[in-house]
Simulated scan of single mutants.
Amino acid sequence: MLQIALLSFAETFAPQHRSVLLRSVGLAIGLLVVLGIAAQATLARMVDLDWHWAEILIDLAAALGIIVAAVFLVPPVTSLIAGLFLDDVAETVERTDFPDEPVGRAVPVGRSIVMTIRFFGVMVLVNLIALLLLLVPGVNLIVFYVANGYLLGREYFQLAALRYRSEQEAAELRSCYGLRIFIAGLMIAVVVSIPIVNLVTPIFATIFMVRLHHRIGREAGRLTPAPGSFPASGTNRQ
């Protein structure tokens, strides 16, 4: 599995994924900057001190807090931004890396938006809890990696699996191979924890989980899109 992860990370920067990577990273950085400016402006309006030195200290503390918060908010923000592009990434991987196997069916746009928003909300909650636990040495790291490992593994594997299976089949497969998917999620969480590098998380995680799903699909004995479950790949973008 480590080999698959390393190959997937290298492929993240390949030419065929460059357009999606640049769009998702650019939009994620832009959104984080806007959120940071808004937070700084709000704090400046709320705090008005007569001592100039005190205002400088508060500004520095606020800037540091915004930077720390941004690190924890990168996973949900990048997932939200990239969520609408990931079917394109998955299809590219399927066509280039598995040319002799069937191509999956794109998840309908409406369903994809619902999944993206749900995942964003859960990721924000988990990472805010981890942020609050910064004052408890060691515990916050455990919460961060375990929670993100579980969530990232579950959601990105489901994205890959739903291109070939119904939701019930995807859930059953995830249950049968839960430990392997969780370990894969931990590997994704490691990338999430590295500043700047974590901006490529959605693309890397999608490539990684598409490959993992194909391996698990072979073991499970079926890797054929469920008849009629979704429109043919790409039709929902017309």
Rank of each mutant, 00 (worst) to 15 (best):
A5L: 08
L7P: 00
L7D: 15
S8R: 05
S8E: 06
F9H: 06
F9D: 00
F9I: 14
F9W: 12
A10R: 14
E11T: 10
F13C: 04
F13K: 02
P15H: 09
Q16N: 07
R18G: 02
V20E: 04
L22K: 12
V25K: 03
G26V: 07
L27Q: 08
I29P: 01
G30I: 04
L31T: 12
L32K: 03
L35E: 05
L35G: 04
G36P: 01
G36T: 10
A41T: 10
T42R: 06
R45G: 15
M46Y: 13
V47T: 11
D48W: 13
D48G: 03
W51S: 14
E55P: 00
E55L: 11
L57T: 12
D59W: 15
D59A: 15
L60D: 06
A61R: 03
A63I: 06
I66D: 11
V71H: 13
V71Y: 12
S79K: 10
I81H: 08
L84M: 11
F85L: 12
D87H: 04
D88V: 08
F98D: 14
F98M: 11
P99W: 11
P99N: 09
V103S: 05
V109L: 14
V109P: 01
G110R: 14
V114I: 15
M115Y: 02
T116W: 06
I117V: 15
I117M: 15
M123C: 10
M123E: 12
V124A: 04
L125M: 12
A130S: 15
L131R: 07
L132H: 05
L132K: 02
L134G: 01
L135W: 13
G138C: 07
V139F: 13
V139P: 00
N140D: 12
N140L: 01
L141C: 02
L141T: 05
Y145M: 14
Y145A: 09
V146F: 07
V146M: 06
A147T: 13
N148R: 03
N148H: 04
Y150Q: 08
L152Y: 08
G153D: 05
G153T: 05
G153M: 07
Y156E: 07
F157W: 07
L159R: 12
L159I: 04
L159H: 08
A160Q: 01
L162D: 07
L162Y: 10
R165I: 02
R165D: 04
S166V: 01
Q168A: 15
E169M: 04
E172H: 06
E172T: 07
L173Q: 08
L173N: 00
C176Y: 10
C176S: 13
C176W: 09
I181S: 02
I181N: 02
G185I: 06
M187H: 00
I188L: 12
A189W: 03
V191K: 01
V197W: 00
I207S: 05
R211Q: 09
H213D: 09
H214G: 15
R215A: 03
I216P: 07
I216W: 00
G217A: 15
G221D: 07
G221M: 07
R222Q: 09
T224W: 05
A226M: 11
A226D: 11
A226E: 14
A232V: 10
S233C: 05
G234D: 09
T235S: 15
